[in-house]
């Protein structure tokens, strides 16, 4: 298992999955875009693609396509609160640089 999730992240995903009422898990991934190369993807999954890797997390599945997996190996997904703002954050050891706002990054 190469993607780690903190307890708050797991709980929050489980809660949001429940609130949404459908779907089999969430997808994490990367895509090439943005000012510094790559950006993260975080989506609900209704039906996984055939090439996807699926990891059982108990109350939900973690879905990653094989290409993104290369970039995300060893990454920790965390849920944080910053004042009024709250959301998910990837702590990616492969990341070498990020743009100023942190929305995109380089490996």
């Amino acid at each position: 298992m190469a993607i780690l999730m903190t307890e708050p992240a797991k709980q929050h995903i489980a809660k949001q999955m429940e609130g949404r009422g459908k779907g089999m898990g969430i997808r994490v991934g990367v895509k090439t875009a943005g000012c510094s190369g790559l950006s993260y993807v975080l989506e609900f999954v209704d039906t996984p693609e055939p090439e996807d890797k699926v990891f059982d997390q108990g109350s939900f599945n973690l879905v990653i396509d094989p290409k993104s997996f290369l970039y995300l190996d060893g990454t920790e997904l965390d849920f944080v609160k910053e004042g009024l703002n709250e959301g998910f954050q990837f702590n990616n050891p492969n990341m070498k640089s990020a743009c100023g706002c942190g929305e995109s990054f380089h490996v």
């Binding site: 995903i13 949001q16 969430i26 997808r27 895509k31 875009a33 943005g34 000012c35 950006s39 993260y40 993807v41 975080l42 989506e43 609900f44 999954v45 209704d46 944080v80 910053e82 703002n85 709250e86 959301g87 998910f88 954050q89 990837f90 990020a98 706002c101 942190g102 929305e103 995109s104």
Partner: peptide, 17 residues
């Protein structure tokens, strides 16, 4: 670091978009 929200399938926002 910008914080992410879970999106509906296929609707991940573009960075900066």
């Amino acid at each position: 670091m910008a914080l992410l929200q879970i999106s509906e399938p296929g609707q991940s926002p573009e960075p900066h978009a």
